[in-house]
């Protein structure tokens, strides 16, 4: 396996494999179902990808550092519940409240990880439990439908701007903001440095802890935004609204070519990864695969993508 990958040149493979895969998948699905290639369907595809992309973007920042955030789906669900419960009272303030909660939860995960030195997967697994429990308690363990009056506040998500669905515009704004953060700021470069070699970054004077905490804050904030958008699209909030999105989000990041070991990756790759996941999902729906059984495919895709992109020289002992 690894020799085969080495012969191909692992860097070149990492660079172009995701995009090639996406193009081949689009052509394949298009050949099977010509409807798929019509502009309306492609626009629908982009809309459907937005939530996944926003979630995956947040977790990309954490994965770039070599960590992981397993609490994003619980955060997104909690945000949807918060919006559904408070939009009647606070109007647009409800969205700010939900996203503020996301930033706070990310801050707490980051502090638990950095200051208490708890491995990120366990800190965020625990934080996910706390968030899920909060969502269950405040929602009374049920899903909350939005009333018509409350839906008017969702027009920036459900409406259209110059013919483009609002959700696509939100996705594009997230793409630009996240790309600038990741590629053109000190934080972005430090993240890549920490992911590539934490001791070296530390020795060069990078405040490793602060960068890590900021990455978790971003992850929490983007997860909450994804929850807000999801609540707008489904016109409801529920403690399990985003429950099926954790695996596809992480898969999107990894399939895009961002290595789970950190250091290598970008927001563009995550966009490509999210599109691949969406096209695969639509392709399976065309083929009539049960929506729950689709998790089998995503599980396999995740493991294969990690196996291809992982930098084994960085982990002499794999645990």
């Amino acid at each position: 396996m690894s020799t085969f990958v080495d012969r191909l040149g692992i860097d070149r493979l990492r660079q172009w494999l995701p995009l090639t895969t996406l193009v081949i998948l689009v052509i394949l699905v298009g050949a099977l179902q010509p409807v798929f290639l019509q502009p309306a369907t492609l626009l629908q595809l982009a809309s459907d990808t937005a939530v996944l992309f926003i979630l995956a973007t947040g977790v990309t920042f954490v994965i770039m550092l070599g960590g992981i955030d397993l609490s994003i789906q619980s955060m997104a669900s909690l945000a949807s519940v918060v919006v559904a419960l408070t939009v009647a009272r606070f109007g647009y303030g409800a969205f700010a409240l939900a996203i503020g909660l996301g930033l706070l939860a990310g801050l707490l995960s980051g502090i638990a990880h950095v200051r208490l030195k708890i491995p990120s997967f366990i800190a965020t697994l625990a934080m996910g439990g706390v968030l899920y429990s909060s969502a269950l308690v405040i929602s009374g363990e049920r899903s909350i439908m939005l009333a018509d009056a409350e839906r008017s506040y969702q027009s920036w998500i459900t409406g259209t701007v110059f013919g483009a669905p609002g959700v696509i515009i939100i996705g594009l704004v997230v793409l630009i903001v996240a790309h600038v953060l990741q590629a053109h700021t000190r934080f972005g470069r430090y993240s890549a440095a920490i992911g590539a070699g934490e001791p070296a970054a530390y020795a060069s004077g990078v405040k490793v802890g602060r960068q890590k905490i900021f990455a978790f804050v971003l992850s929490g904030g983007f997860a909450a935004l994804a929850g807000v958008v999801l609540a707008g699209r489904l016109a409801s909030g529920s403690p399990t609204l985003a429950a099926e999105l954790l695996l596809p989000s992480i898969a999107a990041v990894v399939v895009g070519g961002t290595a789970i070991t950190g250091g290598v990756g970008s927001i563009w790759r995550t966009l490509v990864g999210a599109l691949i996941i969406s096209v695969v999902r639509i392709g399976m729906t065309f083929l009539g695969v049960n929506i729950f059984a689709q998790n089998i495919v995503f599980g396999v895709v995740l493991i294969v993508a990690v196996a291809i992109t992982i930098d084994r020289s960085k982990i002499p002992i794999v645990k």
Binding site: I250, I260, V300, I303, V318
Partner: peptide, 16 residues
């Protein structure tokens, strides 16, 4: 054999 960290392997297998 593929040297995939256990939390990633088992995350995939969980959903499979």
């Amino acid at each position: 054999k593929l040297k995939v960290p256990s939390f990633m392997t088992t995350l995939g297998i969980w959903f499979i």
